[in-house]
Simulated scan of single mutants.
Amino acid sequence: MESVYLIRHAKATGQEPEAGLTEEGLRQAEELAERLAAHHIEYIVSSPWKRALQTAAPLGRVALRHIHTDERLQERVLSTLHLDNWMDVLKRTYTDEDWTGEGGESTRFATARGLEVLGELWNRSERSSAVITHGNMLSLLLRSYDASFGFEDWKNLTNPDVYVMKKQPGDGTSCSIRRIWPD
């Protein structure tokens, strides 16, 4: 694997796992697929949540690829309780990686499950892959490669959003990261 395209899903109707894309989100997913067609995506893996799968579907059609699902790419749950101050709680998780809300998972745990997927992708024989996930998971993956990526960067993510990670030639351990959507 030479390149991994990390993709945040298009605009959705909500945050729950079964929330789908809005009409605008469906159009965004089509546009995303058209723009990524030139990148010759050879392997696609997505969160099983509806909005991620709906974002992946047009790319699968354009790239003529099966969409694999992986629960490790689903969004991180901060807590199973309603949090009026969820933005403050989320901000805290960028500085306290072991904090866990009632029924939720820590930054450290969520990052680890996402990195397992990336580790498996880097070892695949295909040259490029697309990972369709959610905003917080995307930010945690980017943060694992660039420690400066934090809460404010998460707030600046768009729906959709795309970062490409490329292995550095001759160095199997590091990669460059570049945002390619929006451009």
Results as ranks from 00 to 15, higher is better:
111 T>H: 04
7 I>Q: 01
44 I>A: 08
149 F>V: 00
71 E>F: 14
141 L>G: 02
163 Y>I: 01
25 G>Q: 04
25 G>V: 03
161 D>G: 00
10 A>T: 07
56 A>G: 07
54 Q>C: 06
85 N>P: 10
161 D>A: 00
33 A>M: 07
39 H>M: 08
175 C>E: 08
137 M>Y: 02
34 E>Q: 12
120 E>T: 10
74 Q>P: 05
55 T>H: 03
17 P>N: 08
42 E>G: 14
180 I>F: 10
51 R>I: 03
89 V>E: 13
87 M>G: 06
97 E>G: 13
174 S>N: 12
60 G>E: 05
120 E>P: 03
11 K>A: 08
142 L>G: 01
116 E>M: 14
97 E>T: 15
120 E>L: 07
84 D>P: 12
12 A>T: 03
68 H>I: 04
13 T>Y: 03
135 G>R: 01
27 R>T: 12
26 L>S: 14
113 R>I: 08
56 A>P: 02
38 A>P: 03
75 E>P: 01
97 E>D: 12
173 T>M: 11
176 S>P: 04
28 Q>E: 15
162 V>D: 02
155 K>S: 01
124 R>V: 04
59 L>F: 14
105 E>D: 13
99 W>H: 05
142 L>S: 01
98 D>I: 14
89 V>I: 13
32 L>C: 08
110 A>V: 07
104 G>P: 05
123 N>R: 14
22 T>S: 09
98 D>T: 15
66 H>G: 07
31 E>P: 05
